[in-house]
């Protein structure tokens, strides 16, 4: 499908969502061209034939700024975010909806790039975008583009979450903090340059490979997005009679993320990731699981970083390299760069 270049009109003009004919056609022509003819709803809803039984269904909205960043853009983020939310439930992601809110004045060239990256991300993850909608808001009432994606995943074999027990291992699929720090260091007032990239990636392949080989030993999976690893572990231990203990030396963090976190006074364990999964697994298969993950391109830095114990029931703690321990509480507010 050849992407057309000679767009007479450069920007999205008013009067689209409300049926403004000319611009409406242009947008839907472009979306259909790039995302496929059924990604735009012709009649009132898409009809899908899904074998009976349980499905996983999720939705999320994406408002990241800047909309383009090293390692991806808001479109790739929207597709992978929903794919990962389905995959960590043990479901096979199958169908996606994609609704767009465009700000009047948003340029077509960027819009086209984002649609292309959504198409490529859907292709890589093996999901189909089956329905969608577009609305345009007056200039100043939005920030270029917002995307909402919903997704349906099919449960091939019944995978439910098993009871977490003391001795279970905590595994992460790679370096932490890449996405959040990439976005933060792009803010104009922070003059840091590094070749750090967002880790935005589809994890359904990696997860299905792990489930195929070790179906019985996965106790829990979650992608560590907003709030980072520490938030996921706190959600797991809250109110339970066990604690999650992790070891500082075993936690994969890239040099650049360490560097920028030092400069800004941030803790990478609380920074958002967009392509990392936290897995709680039974101890005997943990090494095997990590080896499977390492063979996948998105899991090459996978590592066991700690285990479930009963030292501080209901809490998460970290053992520092000198052998001291400190709690990793749930932080409700977003970290701000600080100098003291």
């Amino acid at each position: 499908m050849e992407e057309s270049k000679d767009r007479a009109i450069k920007k999205i003009l008013p009067g689209h969502g409300s049926g403004g004919k000319l611009m409406n056609d242009m947008i839907s022509v472009m979306i259909k061209e790039i995302l496929g003819k059924d990604s735009i709803q012709i009649d009132d809803s898409a009809v899908l034939d899904i074998a009976s039984g349980k499905i996983a269904f999720t939705t999320d909205s994406y408002t990241v700024t800047p909309i383009f960043f090293p390692g991806g853009d808001i479109g790739k983020l929207a597709v992978n975010g929903t794919v990962n939310d389905l995959a960590v439930m043990g479901a096979v992601p199958a169908f996606l909806s994609c609704s767009l809110i465009l700000e009047e004045g948003f340029d077509f060239e960027s819009f086209e790039k984002i649609l292309i990256s959504m198409r490529d991300a859907a292709g890589e993850a093996g999901v189909k975008i089956v329905t969608g909608d577009t609305k345009v808001v007056p200039n100043g009432k939005g920030d270029k583009i917002y995307i909402n994606t919903s997704g349906i995943g099919i449960f091939k074999n019944e995978v439910q979450r098993r009871e977490i027990k003391k001795g279970d291992k905590i595994i992460v699929s790679g370096t932490l903090g890449d996405h959040g720090i990439t976005i933060m260091s792009l803010r104009n007032d922070l003059r840091f340059s590094s070749d750090l990239k967002s880790d935005c990636a589809p994890l359904n392949g990696l997860i299905s490979e792990v489930i195929a080989k070790y179906p019985e030993s996965i106790k829990f999976m979650r992608d560590a997005t907003r709030g980072g690893l520490a938030s996921v572990l706190n959600e797991i231990t809250a109110g339970k009679d066990y604690s999650a203990g992790i070891t500082e030396d075993d936690i994969p963090v890239s040099e650049e993320v360490k560097g920028i976190c030092n400069l800004l006074g941030l803790d990478p364990l609380y920074v958002a990731n967009e392509g990392k999964v936290v897995i709680i697994a039974s101890p005997e298969d943990a090494d095997g699981i990590v080896n499977v993950m390492k063979s996948n391109q998105y899991g090459k830095d996978s590592a066991i970083i700690g285990e479930i114990d009963s030292l501080y029931p209901g809490k998460v703690y970290i053992k520092t390299f000198i052998g001291g321990k400190r709690l990793l509480p749930l932080l409700i507010e977003e970290q701000l760069p600080r100098i003291c």
């Binding site: 003059r191 340059s193 040099e255 650049e256 560097g259 400069l263």
Partner: peptide, 8 residues
């Protein structure tokens, strides 16, 4: 520069 990160 520190940890591969450069700043002015």
């Amino acid at each position: 520069m520190a940890n591969g990160v450069e700043t002015q």
